[in-house]
């Protein structure tokens, strides 16, 4: 039997990888994939907790998160295409018309 802490540590590692990827990568698609990785890390945590509490709720939440992530992907990819159309690049450093 694998203890629950293993799952949680794995989920924390995946989440951190997503955060680090978001912060250091420069391609818009990669940034977007990092966010998806973070959401899936959360899904793993939900499933692990659902098992710990012997409650199905946590597993149902995963489906909600997946649906939301899909909706987000639809809108996000459309925006990324719009960016590419106006700039012909996907590098975030060159999406810099507005000063930061």
């Amino acid at each position: 039997m694998v203890p629950i802490s293993y799952y949680l540590v794995l989920s924390a590692i995946l989440f951190s990888l997503g955060v680090v990827g978001f912060l250091i990568k420069r391609n818009l698609i990669t940034l977007f994939m990092s966010i998806e990785l973070m959401l899936n890390a959360v899904n793993l945590a939900f499933v692990a907790f659902a098992w710990q509490w012997k409650s199905l709720n946590g597993q149902v939440f995963v489906f909600f998160v997946m649906v939301v992530a899909a909706a987000e992907a639809a809108v996000g990819l459309a925006i990324i295409i719009a960016v590419f159309r106006t700039r012909e690049t996907l590098n975030v450093d060159r999406v810099n018309l507005l000063k930061l």
Binding site: L8, F15, G18, F22, L28, L31, F32, I35, M38, L39, A41, V42, A45, F46, A48, F49, Q52, W53, N57, G58, F61, V65, E72, V75, G76, I79, I80, A82, V83, V95, L98
Partner: peptide, 23 residues
């Protein structure tokens, strides 16, 4: 695109918080 990327990044944090409080 800035709003989208940073907004989704932030909601992922919120969701992780929800998962932990559920745990």
């Amino acid at each position: 695109i800035k709003y989208f990327l940073l907004g989704s990044f932030a909601t992922a944090f919120f969701l992780y918080g929800v998962a932990l409080i559920f745990g």
